Lab assay of single mutants.
Amino acid sequence: MSIQHFRVALIPFFAAFCLPVFAHPETLVKVKDAEDQLGARVGYIELDLNSGKILESFRPEERFPMMSTFKVLLCGAVLSRVDAGQEQLGRRIHYSQNDLVEYSPVTEKHLTDGMTVRELCSAAITMSDNTAANLLLTTIGGPKELTAFLHNMGDHVTRLDRWEPELNEAIPNDERDTTMPAAMATTLRKLLTGELLTLASRQQLIDWMEADKVAGPLLRSALPAGWFIADKSGAGERGSRGIIAALGPDGKPSRIVVIYTTGSQATMDERNRQIAEIGASLIKHW
């Protein structure tokens, strides 16, 4: 067993022997301040990774656009098919120029040779490549099948209805392509620590998230040296922004954090800054 596999296998073990965790309302004060600064709703939840206990939450059962955070769930569904012998990570998928959609920095470079399922998941999570996500959605049967996968996990809230990039439209009061912070946090925890996926697939999923290259201005910008984070960000229309993450000190994750916002007129930089400040408060009061 590799060191990384050992780390993920012992996530519940280490967490069980940690000192009790206590909620700190100071972080919620910052979440509410972010709402004021952005002029928009902000949803927040913080779960203990081992027990699933909610440590703090704000608007945990209000719907927010998922945006690209759905790509972690998508690759979880792909990995479940791999575990069941219905898919192979090494299978190569070929596609054409007509398949390319807006923001496809990886797939646009491989029109000639195609990409493997493993490479597509890596591109979808680490670079948020939209064509990679659409190609992977095709392998599982489309958005409705991802929703069905989530329902089978016990998540009857999260739903995907459309493809990239239309799913980022974020129309107010439109339930399409949305989740709730509580539902997303619980589902992410199941994917990373539950028995739904094999140990190898859980490790692969967290490795992809740990290698995320496009979430630097968010929670990662607030992390002290030595902290662990595996995350996936999302951005959408109407001032929408979000991030889902597993993080913790001492090089291992111990909490799940989900943050979503929508309806702001603020710039992307300002949305990023507010999420980073929430992260800084979380870490300060850990």
Rank of each mutant, 00 (worst) to 15 (best):
T186F: 15
D250Y: 12
K109D: 12
Q88K: 12
G39N: 14
A235V: 05
A185I: 03
Y103G: 06
T139I: 13
S254H: 14
M209G: 03
H151G: 13
L10T: 14
G76Y: 05
R63N: 06
S254W: 09
A77N: 13
A200H: 15
V42K: 00
W163K: 11
W227H: 02
P165Y: 05
L223E: 02
L146T: 04
L135C: 06
L137S: 06
H94F: 14
G216A: 11
N152I: 09
G154E: 09
E166S: 15
A40R: 03
Q204H: 11
T116R: 06
R159T: 09
T187I: 08
P65W: 01
I283F: 11
G142R: 04
F149C: 07
D177R: 01
E35Q: 08
L79N: 02
V117P: 04
T126Q: 09
I206N: 08
L38F: 08
A276S: 14
E164M: 00
R220G: 04
V106T: 07
A77C: 14
A215H: 04
Q203A: 12
D155Q: 02
P20T: 07
D155Y: 01
I229Q: 02
C121P: 00
A40M: 09
W286H: 04
D48K: 04
L137H: 03
C18V: 08
G85D: 10
Q4R: 13
A200Y: 12
S51G: 09
L160K: 02
A222E: 13
D99K: 08
S254Q: 15
D177W: 01
E119R: 05
G234W: 00
R92M: 10
G114C: 04
G279K: 00
D161G: 03
L219H: 03
M127G: 06
K213R: 13
G279Q: 02
S201Y: 05
F6E: 06
L197G: 04
D250N: 15
P20L: 03
W227G: 02
I140A: 07
Q88D: 13
V117A: 04
I206W: 13
T193I: 14
T267M: 11
S104F: 02
D269H: 13
G279I: 04
S57Q: 12
E119M: 06
T261Q: 07
P253T: 08
L219A: 03
L282S: 06
L28N: 07
E277G: 10
H285R: 11
R271P: 05
Y44K: 00
P143E: 05
K284L: 13
R271T: 11
L247P: 00
C75W: 00
L188P: 00
G242P: 00
I283M: 11
S80Y: 15
A200M: 11
I275V: 12
V31P: 01
A170S: 13
L120W: 00
S233T: 14
G194I: 05
A211P: 04
T187E: 04
G216T: 10
V157R: 12
N98C: 07
T126D: 07
K252P: 05
I256W: 01
K190L: 10
L223G: 03
W286S: 01
T193V: 15
G76L: 05
R238K: 13
G43S: 06
D174P: 04
A182M: 15
I259V: 13
R41N: 10
I259K: 00
G194L: 09
L223D: 02
Q203L: 12
L55R: 09
S221M: 11
Y260C: 04
N134A: 04
R41K: 15
K30C: 15
T107G: 05
E108T: 10
E102K: 08
P253Q: 08
A222G: 11
V42C: 08
N272K: 02
T69R: 00
L73Y: 06
W286E: 02
L10S: 10
V72N: 01
I275W: 02
V106N: 07
Q4I: 10
G251A: 12
R162V: 02
E61Q: 14
N130M: 01
S96E: 13
E56S: 11
E102P: 15
D212L: 02
R159V: 07
N98I: 14
I275D: 00
V29W: 15
A200I: 11
Y44N: 00
P12L: 11
A15W: 15
T158N: 01
L219V: 10
F6K: 13
T193Y: 15
L136D: 00
S96K: 11
D250F: 12
H110E: 07
H5I: 08
A77P: 01
R202D: 03
R273G: 14
A280W: 11
A235W: 01
H110V: 05
V214R: 07
L199E: 15
D99Q: 13
T193W: 10
G248E: 01
K252G: 10
L100A: 04
L137T: 07
G242H: 02
I93H: 05
H151N: 13
T139F: 06
T193M: 14
E169L: 13
R159K: 13
S281R: 13
R176H: 09
R7L: 07
I125P: 00
M115F: 04
A245G: 09
G141K: 07
V106M: 12
E175V: 15
K32V: 10
R162L: 05
D161T: 06
K71S: 00
A215R: 04
D161V: 06
E166Q: 13
S51D: 15
Q37G: 10
P60S: 13
E169R: 11
W286G: 02
T261K: 03
G216E: 07
G216P: 05
M67V: 10
T186I: 15
W286N: 03
A246Y: 12
T138A: 15
A124V: 08
A266V: 12
L192S: 05
